[in-house]
Design a protein around this nucleic acid. Structure first.
Lengths: 207, 207
DNA sequence: GTTGTGACCATAATACATTTTGGTCACAAT
DNA sequence: ATTGTGACCAAAATGTATTATGGTCACAAC
């Protein structure tokens, strides 16, 4: 029985969930999107690359955008992992917070401006509210909340303000630097900005 | 002796600084830009509106963009005044800060989305780093610094962090909500966001 | 000197014909 | 039932010829 997708946006649920061809498509798409960009890559290009017909691609993905979203999800997942690793290798909630912010900025800059072509996908994703972006934002928000919780337990952070509100407001401070479309307008003196904002955040958390 | 303009961007220095025709141009431009938008309005339209030839316009303004910049400056000045008024009618630095942020958001929303057509000018200004935007940012930054200084004197705010750094970091928190291009991506739950960020800022300022 | 303009040019915007592209479907092979 | 495709369509992208627009300048009226 085919699972009807009930998500607001069509997810990639089509055809066998794990199938060799699906992986080939993702691999080819990753390569092509990186090299020639999302717009310049046609679905036929991908089909040719893996030696099948264009129609067969649509047995696995609902649309070209669905493919882009998958690639985008992977990219964002990479950042998530960078962050997870960064905050694991450092101790003390305040320093974890600093490192989290630092890593987000660094990884985002690397992804969006080193791999220039992936930027347009991430930009579309962020602008069009793709599920990939929402999941990403929620993930980071969650990590943030964890650090805050740790800091409250360890006595590093104040405990009066509701945890959820604290997490949300700090997330809002960081958001302009992880949202690709906003990041563009925050490039100059970004290092300085990040450090000063980190300090402001930590001051706001002092018990 | 004609004053050579040494600014990085050509300012509106051309022809007599105050002249009836200059004002007519500004008035016509304000009206037309509001009604039909910046792009849709041609310089000839403005000329026709004030009953002169197109060439005469260029005796007063270096370019169409220079006219746009003037109108933009006026718009932003309006916000500045709103803010100035708002923080004057309220007392206590913490409440002044809250009101400042609140007024910036409200006035920006009104300007950019009620007067929809002016948005494209402000957007170009913000994106292209026109002097109008720079002056605007510096003005708000200055007002912010004043409030902080008052708060330090009254004992409401901490005094350890350098004043300049505090002002800068708080400004960075507010910036996504006054920068028209970023404001677009912060529309949902903007009221809630603004209040939570205000609280975060005030927490960071507690002595 | 100040006020004012029509004619003129290079480039940007527009409009339109043509081609590409995303996406579907009936149908074939295993 | 699963794997796979060529033919087909509406809509978007592209190239191109044409027009409109921003901007200048020599020159005229006062």
């Amino acid at each position: 029985m085919p699972m009807k997708n009930t998500a607001p946006y069509p997810t990639t649920a089509r055809g066998p969930a794990d199938h060799d061809v699906r992986d080939q498509i993702v691999a080819a798409a990753t390569d092509h999107f990186r090299r020639y960009g999302y717009e310049k890559t046609t679905v036929s290009d991908l089909a040719k690359a893996i030696g099948f017909s264009k129609a067969y691609i649509y047995k696995f993905f609902e649309s070209k955008q669905a493919i882009g979203e998958m690639i985008c999800t992977n990219c964002l997942r990479e950042i998530e992992n960078d962050v997870r690793e960064a905050i694991a290798t450092v101790e003390g909630p305040p320093e974890k917070l600093r490192r989290m912010f630092k890593t987000i900025v660094e990884s985002s800059l690397r992804l969006f401006f080193q791999d220039r072509n992936l930027f347009e996908i991430a930009a579309s994703a962020a602008g069009g509210r793709w599920p990939a972006t929402i999941a990403y934002e929620e993930c980071l928000h969650g990590m943030l909340q964890d650090i805050l919780q740790q800091g409250r337990l360890s006595g590093d952070f104040e405990r009066k303000t509701p945890l959820d509100e604290t997490a949300r407001s700090i997330y809002l401070v960081m958001r302009p630097y992880l949202h690709p479309l906003m990041l563009q307008y925050n490039l100059e003196n970004i290092e300085e900005a990040r450090m000063q904002l980190s300090s402001l955040i930590l001051r706001s958390l002092s018990p």
